[in-house]
């Protein structure tokens, strides 16, 4: 009898635990942390071929093609990025290296092969365009969580809706932004940026998520400038995770001499 009742108790406990697990999270910090890991820190490292299709407000289209390598120094913390440009031809073979910090300015280097020149790039303003696209540097490498106050404003069937206000409003062009985070896989699916007038002027939208090696991965996304009318679509292909990238790839040596991983 004793055994039976214990089994029933355990079963009951187990069952009672189930609805708890499926219950909505209420800790906004935990939601944001998980979303940050999901969007920017999948695996120990990774690579992807990226095409940015930039359409300006007059409908003219320009394309940027590059291969990006990423290596996490600490999960959720410092990261290194290596970008090898392939097209258009005036930027072909240029390389770009970022050592992302969680506090303070990132270290950025650009290599111009025609001059054999390694340039150090100032990075105090992370909200400037990445290679002329509507993506900002911060959209590519992630905005540090501690730079905003986060507030869970709504939980729908599908999303956690979180409003974010910058702690230092002078450092950014928005007054707040709202993010829709998918409850099932913690992927931020949409973000809307508001200006001082309270109008949404910039919109980031995930158009496609694929499962790559068990990691949910954004393979297509779009940023729209609702004020001036331009947009950039980013498409990723040849994605790989946990490819054992060496730390040395993210140094001046490979900036000057692109590694096999990007060629």
């Amino acid at each position: 009898m004793k055994t039976v009742s214990l089994t029933i108790t355990l079963l009951f406990l187990f069952l009672s635990a189930l609805p708890l697990q499926a219950e909505d999270k209420t800790d906004v910090a935990a939601i944001i942390d998980q979303a940050n890991l999901t969007s920017y820190y999948q695996g120990q490292d990774g690579r992807a071929d990226v095409t940015l299709t930039i359409t300006d407000n007059q409908g003219r289209v320009r394309e940027r093609e590059m291969t990006i390598l990423r290596r996490d120094v600490t999960d959720g913390g410092e990261q290194q990025f290596y970008v090898f440009f392939k097209r258009p031809s005036d930027v072909r073979k240029m390389t770009f290296l970022v050592h992302k910090k969680t506090s303070g300015d990132d270290d950025r280097w650009l290599y111009l092969p025609a001059l054999d020149l390694v340039k150090r790039i100032a990075s105090s303003d992370k909200r400037t365009s990445f290679v002329g696209s509507h993506f900002f540097y911060e959209d590519v490498s992630g905005r540090a969580i501690h730079e905003d106050e986060h507030q869970l404003i709504e939980t729908t069937d599908q999303y956690y809706v979180i409003n974010n206000t910058p702690k230092d409003p002078g450092s950014v062009e928005f007054t707040s932004y709202t993010v829709w985070i998918d409850k099932t896989n913690s992927m931020p699916m949409k973000a809307e940026y508001r200006n001082t007038a309270g109008n949404v002027y910039r919109e980031v939208e995930v158009l496609e998520v694929q499962d790559i090696q068990g990691y949910p991965t954004v393979t297509k996304s779009r940023i729209r400038d609702l004020e001036s009318g331009g947009e950039t679509v980013s498409s990723l292909s040849n994605i790989g995770y946990d490819i054992s990238l060496k730390e040395s790839i993210f140094t001046e040596r490979f900036l000057r001499r692109p590694p096999r991983e990007v060629r």
Binding site: G104, D105, D107, R120, I121, A122, S123, S124
Partner: peptide, 9 residues
């Protein structure tokens, strides 16, 4: 010597 200082290079 080269590095970041005060948000610049």
């Amino acid at each position: 010597v080269r590095g970041t200082m005060g948000g610049g290079i």
